[in-house]
């Protein structure tokens, strides 16, 4: 079992989606996360173990390397694609209550801002870390965040912004979330942000990269 799950973790870490995928070149023709997840489940490995000891391990490794600038955005995207291929097999188990997320993470780019690549990377890594992700998309109003929070008890919220003109919209969103659902944790990120800014607007956390957001959630 351990060997198969380690193979699965490697596939996610290296971005090997399936046997047909040409990437990475040195794994051409080998099974990918798709085939190995199916195999693990067919062999009777518990879905929670496939998630926690295979997929999450692989995504954690690549996320850590990304935060250390040892791999780059495309590497993270390929890993997320491999992760998604495996997660597709786990979906029925989540729905049936036989596999479990660590919690719910609601993420969106704040009102007025249309950028999504950073937000998407965070969503991928957090999902790869075992969390259920509710992605509200871009240009999300404070009210829409609040509505999503009300539908997901105990969730954590992530706010993204790329522009100096839109990062200021985070403050209103944080305030409204805290007012409507006191105790809800909010983490913020985006190119122009700093920890100081996060503190100033009342956010609970700041992360400069996706893995940092996951670390915040996992604490």
């Amino acid at each position: 079992m351990e060997e198969l799950l380690e193979q699965l973790a490697v596939c996610v870490e290296r971005g090997k989606v399936n046997a047909a995928s040409p990437y990475p070149p040195d794994m051409k023709g080998e099974d990918g996360a798709d085939e190995l997840t199916k195999k693990a489940l067919d062999e009777g490995i518990a879905p929670d173990d496939v998630l926690a000891k295979g997929l999450v391990i692989g995504m954690g490794r690549v996320g850590q390397k990304f935060s250390e600038n040892k791999v780059f955005v495309p590497d993270l995207l390929m890993a997320a694609k491999a992760m998604s291929a495996g997660m597709a097999y786990l979906k029925p188990f989540f729905e049936a209550g036989e596999a479990h997320h660590k919690g719910v993470f609601i993420i969106g780019t704040v009102q007025g801002d249309l950028h999504d690549i950073g937000k998407n990377l965070v969503a991928m890594v957090v999902e790869g870390g075992g969390w259920k992700v509710v992605d509200l998309g871009v240009d999300v109003s404070p009210e829409k965040f609040v509505e999503a929070v009300s539908e997901n008890d105990g969730c954590v919220v992530g706010l993204s912004a790329l522009l100096t003109t839109t990062m200021v919209n985070m403050e209103k969103t944080v305030a409204l979330i805290k007012k409507s659902a006191p105790g809800t944790k909010v983490v913020v990120g985006g190119a122009p942000l700093t920890a100081e800014f996060a503190e100033k607007i009342g956010a609970d956390g700041y992360s400069a990269d996706p893995q940092g957001a996951l670390s915040f959630l996992d604490v």
Binding site: P22, Y23, V73, P74, D75, L77, M78, I117, N120
Partner: peptide
């Protein structure tokens, strides 16, 4: 599209 292009750069079809 940005994400498509990043995948292209890795897979180079």
């Amino acid at each position: 599209g940005t994400e498509n292009l990043f995948v292209d750069i890795m897979c180079q079809p």
